[in-house]
Design a protein around this nucleic acid. Structure first.
Lengths: 127, 127
DNA sequence: ATAGACTTTCCACTAACTGGAAGGTCAAGG
DNA sequence: CCTTGACCTTCCAGTTAGTGGAAAGTCTAT
């Protein structure tokens, strides 16, 4: 498989596959005579794994950890759970922040008449 | 006021105040003989305005728009409300995404025993 | 042989700062 | 007057996770 086939199979853009190779996250299985990256099924599995983990907002660093665990037959589920729990907690913190933000902003937007006069509670609040 | 006083008064780090000057968002009122930035109350008000808007996750570009409106006596509240409403909608979209993410991840974390055995539904799902 | 669809590397850019180096300035204390 | 330490300046690099593009090489089909 060359890079565009691997990209299609893993659901990632070609540029991103090349980027992951550059940073040593998922290297190509080998290179052709001409220097083209060649991917095999195992490499594509790793790429897909990363893509899925990224949709969970795991950072690339966390993906690297998870990938190591993924490939380590001797890993314990406790190790994996620890990383996932940390991510979950971060997401929940972000959620609470976002909720507070939304409520404040919604309040201001609601209070603003949005007409052609200049007085505006949003600006009053910010200024 | 020199930069560290302005920073303290506006609640921003010195580096950030300098950065905002660099990008032409909030320039110092003048410079001293020695080239030190000098801030006055109006500049500090603008810095504070930006800081508050940033806590609402307005981008720097949006802050620039808002700042223009803030300083424009002829603005209408409709103009301000339009920007704030757009921001609010983006926040709500982000909230829904985050909720879906959290639910999926929470489900996986809950299903994972987190013991010293290798089998793990999180890894199973990702792989 | 040549067109066009691939591939390579490398460089620059994104947002919004932050950290650090090298060097100039200022105020207080001895 | 000199020194010390806390300021200040500019400039450069790095952060995240890629994306866009240029120049050049390769592959495949006609």
């Amino acid at each position: 498989m060359n890079i565009s086939e691997a990209a299609k199979a893993s659901g990632l853009p070609v540029k991103t596959v090349r980027y992951y190779a550059d940073i040593g996250l998922v290297e190509a299985a080998s290179r052709s005579q001409a220097g083209y990256r060649i991917y095999n099924d195992a490499a594509v599995r790793r790429l897909s794994f990363i893509r899925r983990a990224r949709t969970f907002d795991f950072s690339v660093a966390e993906c690297r950890e998870l990938l190591d665990l993924y490939q380590d037959q001797g890993r314990t589920s406790a190790e994996v759970k620890k990383i996932a729990s940390k991510r979950l907690e971060e997401i929940e913190i972000k959620q609470r922040e976002l909720q507070a933000l939304r409520d404040d902003l919604a309040h201001l937007v609601k209070a603003c008449r949005g007409d052609d006069r200049p007085d505006c509670p949003i600006i009053d609040f910010l200024g």
